[in-house]
Amino acid sequence: MRSRLPVLRERKRYIAFEAEAEGPVISRDLISEFHSAYVSLFGDVGVSVNRAKLISLQGRFGILMCWDGHVEETRAALATIYAVSGTRVAIRVLGVSGTVKAATEKYIPKLSQVSAVEERRIELEEISGWIARSRGLEIDVSRKDRINGSDTRYLGLTCFDLDGGCDDADGTSDGL
């Protein structure tokens, strides 16, 4: 079978993203959730026009392919994902590129700090609980009682809340 002429081929765009979640995210669940969100927003016709697919998901960073001209739609569909198999998640688009290589080199960090688990208890005037994990300046604290007004498992705090923080910290997510 003869291949399609290059001029007739549709161009692709690769969206590098970060899945900020309360727990580990499996790629199968994520793509299923994305597909469900996309169908809910644009219907079957929309899905047929833009056949987005997950290229890779390593840790919390991933790359998603979509057709050129449908980047904003894909971005909107990613923004409507708020939970993956019951775990709260937020998909942050890091950037859009024309090739997988460029997307990886530009937007996916080579080093990322692994969440450290510290067996430390926090006792403040208003809140108390165990540190579930920390990343850079960000600290997630688990509480036994349910948090009012939100469906998250952890309280989101920072070093600034606990001990005043560090003056030279730049506050990047990786703390590198």
Binding site: E138, I147, N148, G149, S150, G156, L157, T158
Partner: peptide, 16 residues
């Protein structure tokens, strides 16, 4: 106490 993240956490993420 209305939400589940402190103002500083919100500020850090919003800046990012």
């Amino acid at each position: 106490p209305e939400g589940s993240s402190s103002a500083s956490r919100m500020a850090l993420v919003a800046r990012r």
